[in-house]
Design a protein around this nucleic acid. Structure first.
Lengths: 234, 234
DNA sequence: TTAATTATGGTCAAAGTGACCAAGAAAGGG
DNA sequence: CCCTTTCTTGGTCACTTTGACCATAATTAA
C-alpha cells in the first residue's frame, strides 16, 4: 500500500526504538521497508498520529499491534522536524524509547515483520549486528533513524544511574538477582563492571531506602553459587 | 486576528520558555493573550511551524522577531500532544527552552508584548511573580504551559552540573567572575551555595581541564574585594 | 576430588563533599 | 582616618563515595 501525502500540510508520526535485553546483549527491533522511500532499508517501526490520539497513544497502540505485550515502558525521546527528512512530504516524527522486559517476546517475533539486532554501545556511538552476525551499516538505516537510535542510547546510558530505567529490562522486577541486573547495566554501558562495587552501589541506592528488598529465595542459574533474589517494592 | 483551524488536520506549533537572569533573579518572559482561547491569561510566546521550516527554525525566528538578540541558546524540551490541549483544534506543541544572556534585553522589552516574571524555583515546583510583585497563579497560565515551564526548570536544574548550560546566562561568557556564575547557579537551584565549595567545584571541573582560564583582569562590582575575571575557551 | 564459576563480603587508598574558619581587598560611615 | 561591612579567595577537617583489589562461599563440570 502506497500512501500519498498532501504537499500542503504537515503530518506527525511516531517512531519507536524498541529495546530488549537477552543473552547478555541489548537488542533493537527493526523492520525492513518494502515500499519507497528507503525501500529495502531497515527502519524503526512507526506510524502516523491520528487526529483523535496523542502521540503517546499512537506509540503504545503501535507497540501493542506489533507485539503481544502490555507492560512495556515508554518514554518520549526527541522530536525530529527537519524539512527534508521524509521524501514523501512534510512529516515530523516524535521518537519514543520502548523497553520490553526480558523474555517478553520469546519467539513471538516470528509472526511479525520485526527483526532483532544486537546493539554494541560504544559510549555514544553504536553498532548494530543482525541475527546472522552481519554488521549493519548506518547507511542501511532509513530516514534519520540513526539519529534517533543514538539519542536513545545516550538517554538510556545517562539515566541508568539516577533513575530505575535499568530495572525495566528485567524479566520480572518482582524477582531478580543482582547478577541479572548487573548484566543489563553492562550491556547498556558497553563495559564490564566490578561485581562487588556494583552490588555495593545498588544496595546503597535501593535496598537501604526500602525500595528494593531481598526475598528469602535463591536461584541456581547454571554454574556457580546460587544468587539471592530481590524484588522492587510498590 | 482570529485564526481558524481546520478540524480535519493536525497543526504543529512551537512554544518558547525564554529565560534570562538579572538582579539575582531568574526571569521568564510571557505574553498576555488578547484573543480566545484563554483570553487574558498569560502564555509562553509561540507560533505555528511552517511547511518550509523545521521546528527549531520556527523557534529561532519567533525569538528573533520578538527580541533584538541573535545569541540565545535554544534547546528542545518536550513535545506536548494531548488531544484537547488547544480548544481551537488539534495542535501539537514542541516546547523549547531559550536562554538569553544577562543584559541581552536591557529595556528592549518595552517595545514588545512580553512581560517579565520572576521565577522562584522550589525544586521541581515553581512560583512566578510579576513586575508589580503580584504572584501569578497557575490558573492564570494558558494551555498546558505550566507543564512546559515545570519541565524547563527541572531540565535546567538537572543539567546544571554536568553541562555548561549555566554559562549561557552570563552577560559575557568571555569575561565573568565566579561570583556572577554562583549567583546564576543559586537562582536556578533556588538556594544559597557555599562560596568556597562552589569555587572549588567550578575550578576543578573547568579550569583544571583548560576549558576555563583566568584572565589577568579584575573587576570592582560595588562593595567587597575585586574579583578575578575568567573566560570560557573556544 | 579438583577445577572452574558465580555470588557475596570486606579492605584500603584516593578522590570528592559539606561545614567551617581565616585572611585579603575593596567601599562606606562615623 | 579608622572601623565595620561586604565580597573574594584560600585553607582545614571529618565524612562519604569510588575504584581497585582480595578472600571466601556455594554451586556445577570434569
Amino acid at each position: 500500500m502506497h500512501i500519498t501525502l498532501s504537499g500542503d500540510r504537515l503530518y506527525v508520526a511516531v517512531d519507536l526504538m524498541i529495546m530488549i535485553y537477552g543473552d547478555g546483549k541489548l537488542r533493537l527491533l527493526l523492520s525492513r521497508r518494502v515500499n519507497p522511500p528507503f525501500d529495502g532499508l531497515w527502519a524503526l517501526p512507526g506510524r502516523f498520529v491520528g487526529l483523535d490520539e496523542s502521540a503517546e497513544d499512537a506509540a503504545r497502540r503501535l507497540l501493542e499491534e506489533m507485539l503481544p505485550i502490555d507492560s512495556a515502558y515508554l518514554e518520549q525521546l526527541y522530536t525530529f522536524t527537519g524539512v527534508g527528512r521524509d521524501p514523501r512530504g512534510r512529516v515530523i516524527s516524535v521518537g519514543y524509547l520502548a523497553i520490553v522486559p526480558a523474555g517478553g517476546l520469546d519467539g513471538a517475533l516470528a509472526g511479525t515483520i520485526l527483526h532483532s539486532f544486537d546493539i554494541d554501545t560504544l559510549s555514544s556511538e553504536f553498532a548494530l549486528t543482525g541475527e546472522d552476525g552481519r554488521p549493519l551499516g548506518k547507511e542501511e538505516l532509513a530516514f534519520d533513524h540513526e539519529a534517533i537510535i543514538r539519542m536513545g542510547i545516550v538517554r538510556l546510558q545517562g539515566k541508568l544511574d539516577y533513575t530505575e530505567i535499568g530495572f525495566r529490562f528485567l524479566r520480572n522486577p518482582e524477582c531478580f538477582s543482582l547478577g541479572e541486573l548487573q548484566d543489563v547495566h553492562e550491556a547498556i554501558l558497553g563495559k564490564k563492571l566490578d561485581d562487588s562495587n556494583f552490588r555495593r552501589g545498588i544496595l546503597a541506592k535501593y535496598e537501604k531506602t526500602g525500595r528494593m528488598v531481598q526475598t528469602d529465595k535463591t536461584v541456581r542459574s547454571g554454574r556457580g553459587r546460587p544468587s539471592g533474589l530481590y524484588c522492587l517494592k510498590d
